[in-house]
């Protein structure tokens, strides 16, 4: 591509560059906005809107700082203000961020799921919802108890569901380029090698948690025979799932011409 010669613009050139930066900022903010809304299509609408607004503001701040710098004005004060605002925002959202982080880790490391009966501190009930901030328990008295997710990282959690030890739940994210039916079929074939350590009455169960145009969040549930096999089965199942994902992500080679085939 041949770039236009902007030299004749002389002193106006920085303003032209600033205008270009702002135009790119505008386009980027729109594209990222669209992406966030589509990725968060199954989240609460106000959370999706807030996230996209926050990201927009961030992109615009960076764009404006760069544009202002381009026209030769010092941005030190502006950067300081933005930095302080950022720190203030993080402090203000500390608890929310802690809960969201705790949800990520408890998903992976704390063995309970929707439908299980759990005891956390003085609260006991059936898990009916796990959202990014809290886990909702329905008590025997029909009361709704909302437990901040960070409590699950700092408290002893007792899963009182009968034979809860049998279940190994593995969260999986599958990108949209992978055919889910093929993924399920391959995972089942691969996991059949572990069947000596799994309860033969319960084949692997793959259930959907959330989905957006980019990924499908699934939970693979396995039922082990012996409590002592939990760790080894989890590790091996994770490895096998990763291998299947890797295999299916790799573009298929056309046997005849060696060209890559698009994922189905």
């Amino acid at each position: 591509m041949i770039l236009p010669n902007l030299a004749p613009l002389g002193p106006a050139l920085p303003f032209v560059y600033a205008a270009i930066i702002l135009a790119v900022t505008w386009a980027l903010a729109r594209a990222v906005n669209r992406l966030i809304r589509s990725v968060m299509s199954e989240s609460m609408p106000h959370v999706a809107v807030s996230s996209s607004r926050f990201t927009s503001v961030l992109i615009w701040v960076v764009g404006i700082v760069l544009a202002v710098q381009e026209i030769g004005v010092s941005t030190d004060i502006l950067l300081l203000v933005v930095g302080l605002a950022g720190v203030a925002a993080v402090i203000a959202c500390r608890e929310a961020l802690e809960n969201a982080g705790a949800k990520y880790f408890s998903d992976v490391y704390i063995p309970f799921k929707i439908g299980d009966s759990v005891r956390v501190g003085e609260h006991e009930g059936k898990v009916i919802e796990i959202n990014p901030m809290t886990t909702l328990l329905l008590t025997e008295k029909d009361q709704l108890v909302s437990i901040p997710n960070r409590m699950f990282m700092g408290q002893v959690v007792v899963n009182t569901t009968p034979q809860a030890w049998k279940e190994v739940a593995i969260p999986i994210s599958v990108t949209s380029g992978i055919n889910l039916a093929e993924f399920e079929s391959e995972v089942r074939k691969s996991l059949s090698k572990l069947r000596s350590r799994l309860d033969p009455r319960f084949p692997p169960l793959l259930s959907g948690r959330a989905r957006n145009p980019l990924t499908s969040d699934l939970t693979l549930t396995l039922f082990i025979r012996q409590p002592g096999d939990r760790d080894i089965v989890t590790t091996e199942a994770n490895r096998r799932v990763s291998l299947v994902l890797e295999k299916l992500q790799r573009p298929k080679r056309n046997a005849r011409n060696g060209r890559a085939e698009p994922a189905t």
Binding site: E182, K189, P200, P203
Partner: peptide
Amino acid sequence: LWTADFSEFAYY
């Protein structure tokens, strides 16, 4: 339930 055939049944 653990056969390759069942994987195809699940596929369908």
